[in-house]
């Protein structure tokens, strides 16, 4: 996929187009996975996917730090590099990650189910009952915000606010995990 498409998708996403955002995340995920796998094969596949999910969460919560018009890749790779180093630090390893190495895209081979990871589920379990339910309903069960609101008897706005806070809390839990 050409570079321009990433910038276009992310610009549309940051302007509120959630279809563009979904496409952006789905497009970059295999590339991120390739980078993480190439660097961290020794961690094992599930751990690698944990790191991929960390990176996705970081991209999500920090997407306002991308400047429209700026190239997406250096920004994206800097976040990836930062999170990969974090993951290794958490596992007590020292690695060297020259950023130039990221400039060639490495696509991962699709294994049987390389996209399942365990840490995020554990962290969601550490959230409160309601935020955890919201993340699970929307993420795992694929419910819409409206459906989730109906089930939990909350307004759409309250569900959105709770979801945003839950994702921030997940990132914070993860950071504490890492330290």
């Amino acid at each position: 996929m050409p570079v321009d498409d990433w910038a276009e998708l992310l610009a549309a996403a940051n302007a509120g187009d959630s279809r563009a955002y979904e496409r952006f995340l789905l497009t970059v995920t295999p590339v991120l996975r390739g980078i993480v796998m190439a660097r961290g094969r020794s961690l094992g596949q599930a751990s690698c996917e944990d790191v991929v999910q960390d990176v996705l969460l970081a991209i999500h919560l920090k997407r306002h730090t991308w400047t429209e018009g700026a190239p997406v890749r250096p920004w994206l790779y800097a976040i990836t590099r930062y999170k990969v180093i974090d993951a290794f630090r958490a596992r007590g390893r020292q690695i060297d990650l020259p950023i130039d190495d990221f400039l060639t895209d490495l696509m991962a081979d699709a294994g049987p189910d390389p996209t399942d990871a365990s840490d995020m589920a554990k962290l969601i379990g550490m959230l409160g009952e309601r935020p955890a339910a919201i993340v699970r309903m929307i993420g795992v069960e694929g419910a819409t915000v409206a459906e989730t609101g109906q089930t939990l008897q909350m307004s759409d706005g309250a569900v959105r606010v709770a979801l945003h806070r839950a994702l921030k809390a997940l990132a914070a839990l993860r950071a504490r995990h890492v330290e």
């Binding site: 959630s18 996705l56 399942d116 995020m120 969601i124 795992v140």
Partner: peptide, 17 residues
């Protein structure tokens, strides 16, 4: 949790700082 599930949750969160 699968990565596609996480992405679904991320996409549903439209709040941007």
């Amino acid at each position: 949790m699968k990565t596609e599930s996480l992405i679904r949750a991320l996409v549903a969160d439209t709040a941007i700082d």
